[in-house]
Design a protein around this nucleic acid. Structure first.
Lengths: 248, 248
DNA sequence: CGACGCTTTGAAGGCCCTCAAATCAGGTGG
DNA sequence: CCACCTGATTTGAGGGCCTTCAAAGCGTCG
């Protein structure tokens, strides 16, 4: 290690083996709505997807573009965000491998209502509307599972609304850190490291506040020994204290 | 008219004919996810629903109750709201006839995540999980339509998030009035009357503000001749001006 | 008519945004 | 390996939007 890096984040690199048939099948099987499929059906479904590699910060699709593909993240992290007329961005979600995104006219939306970009280097599978409709028509189970996933997402969105409408910034940020730790956290020593580049601006866009306020809150949490944090990384050192703040 | 009522709202009364077979079929057919069914299938589906009458302010189900029925509103208006620990309520949605609400474990949620109550007297159809699963399994079209409806709801929730995170109260209230007018508005003279009891507190709970602030904004709009308003009613007199405020 | 509850209005104060500038980490190229 | 440069983060001061608390006004219903 001759490097001077101080970030504790692992920096995974996208390699060819991430898109072998085996990995693809594994990730497809991970997607909740394909979980009921056996290996053979999975093979059939796999053939309908095309794989793409995208570099960090590359845009995958833009808000208002015509909805053309449903996508599944195989490797990396994808960021979904809304642009508002006022210029402020809202970070809707950060996705991990196995999650789906994008939409299709078939699913009731003619245009993407958010922009998706590669938060890190990514490998992504895409399927068009015709092929996906074929899958849904022949596997009602998958359609039902998809309904369930969407219900979860709706619930999550409503939680966000509740927080925005009734919680002060400190509480919202605490709740956001907990949810990110739940999704991207890995145990490291006695800490819970959020394995994901996460800037103050990212945090601000998730919680609907400003970079400066997010910074102030994070500094405060660090003073209280609840977290350790640096440039684009966070590690939670006192989970209970953070929960306390988020519930207060 | 010997009454001293000054509210311009019509006060529809729940009567027996609202739950005749014909009305039930009509409303079932109205629900987006049953739109593809022919009359005969609709008859079959209808047999699986049970009708209930509820009085204004009666609770239909409570947040955290075990999810047991999917419901369809046939007559009246239903109000969905979240309770927060801090005691503040968030009004998620006001439903009109033809909309569905409630959920089922089948759809990915074991418990209701909001409370539903009758905003006016209502007639409601309910179906249990077993029967609904049977419908979904035999009609993939319906499952797909349901996915579309949920996508719409998710989109709407994200719009709300965007507004809460980046718009001042006045803009949020203007947007809310427009959306309510779109859903419940009826032309009356040169105005657009929102045919729904709507208190300042209701408005505040939808927009994530307080009764007092909602009142101040509404008074301001009335001063500007954009709306006419009174106890639990609103009528929009200058739609363009309201749009202007909401877009600013 | 009388009372309850919805609505309005006022004043004070706090939370958070805005604007501005300094500091710092990490990558780059010499 | 070091100096520089870019972009992220921190910190401060000021001010505005909204909430909170209080109290008065007024429509509706019994």
């Amino acid at each position: 290690m001759t490097s001077r890096r101080t970030t504790p984040l692992a920096q995974p690199v996208l390699q060819s083996h991430h898109c072998t048939i085996d990995t693809r099948l594994e990730k497809l099987g991970l997607v909740t709505f394909f979980q009921t499929l056996d290996r053979q059906s999975l093979h059939g479904v796999n053939g309908l997807f095309r794989a793409h590699h995208v570099r960090q910060n590359d845009v995958i699709y833009r808000q208002h573009d015509k909805a053309a593909y449903l996508r599944i993240l195989v490797f990396g992290a994808v960021c979904l965000l809304h642009h508002t007329e006022s210029g402020k961005d809202i970070l809707i979600d950060l996705l991990q491998p196995g999650e789906y995104f994008g939409t299709l006219p078939l699913l009731g939306e003619d245009h993407y209502s958010e922009t998706a970009y590669a938060h890190t280097d990514c490998c992504i599978l895409a399927i068009n509307g015709t092929d996906f409709e074929q899958i849904l028509q022949s596997h009602p189970d998958i359609a039902i599972a998809l309904i369930g996933i969407n219900a979860q997402r709706l619930k999550k969105a409503r939680d966000t609304i509740r927080h925005l409408a009734s919680s002060p910034v400190e509480k919202r940020i605490a709740a956001t850190l907990l949810s990110l730790a739940h999704k991207f956290g890995i145990k490291k020593d006695e800490e819970l490291l959020v394995q994901l580049p996460l800037s103050r601006k990212n945090l601000a866009d998730i919680t609907g506040t400003t970079t400066e306020t997010a910074s102030r809150v994070m500094s405060h949490f660090q003073d209280e020994r609840i977290i350790k944090t640096g440039r684009k990384w966070v590690s939670i050192t006192n989970l209970d204290a953070l929960k306390q703040v988020s519930e207060h």
